[in-house]
């Protein structure tokens, strides 16, 4: 997992990664489950984001429990134009968001600026 870029605003920072092993819906779902299963991680929920039809009547975004299994995520993805899988939860007490772009298979981790000290642990645990 190689960090490629980062974006920081006044409140939150997002770090982007490449990982050649995450290259399909199956491996993307597995990565999200891995993040949800990190030691000291309290998973909140998983969002399947329909980015293609953000404001459209046919928007297919949906929400799963944070402890969903990879098979459940894949089943929920079936037949939908989902652009991103996103997990939100608390890692070592700090709020953390984990996302996979299902087009470019770019990985992303978002933390509040006050919790940036957690990043190195997250990167180590996800490696």
């Amino acid at each position: 997992m190689i960090r490629t870029k980062e974006a920081k605003d006044a409140s939150v920072s997002t770090f982007y990664y490449e990982d050649p092993s995450v290259n399909s819906r199956e491996t993307a779902a597995a990565w999200i489950v891995k993040a949800a299963s990190l030691a000291e991680m309290q998973p909140g929920y998983i969002m399947l984001r329909d980015l293609e039809n953000r404001s459209e009547e046919g928007n297919q975004s949906c929400r799963l429990t944070g402890t969903a299994k990879a098979e459940e995520i894949l089943e929920a993805l079936e037949g939908k134009s989902i652009g991103r899988i996103f997990l939100i939860g608390r890692y070592k007490g700090g709020k953390a968001g984990f996302g996979v772009d299902l087009t470019a298979f770019e990985l992303a981790v978002t933390l509040r600026n006050g919790d940036l000290a957690l990043l190195s642990d997250i990167e180590r645990d996800l490696a």
Binding site: A7, S11, T14, R49, K95, G97, T110
Partner: peptide, 13 residues
């Protein structure tokens, strides 16, 4: 709303 902001940070960079 904090959760929403974190999700939006990835959706609308």
């Amino acid at each position: 709303y904090e959760d929403f902001r974190m999700m939006a940070a990835q959706d609308y960079p």
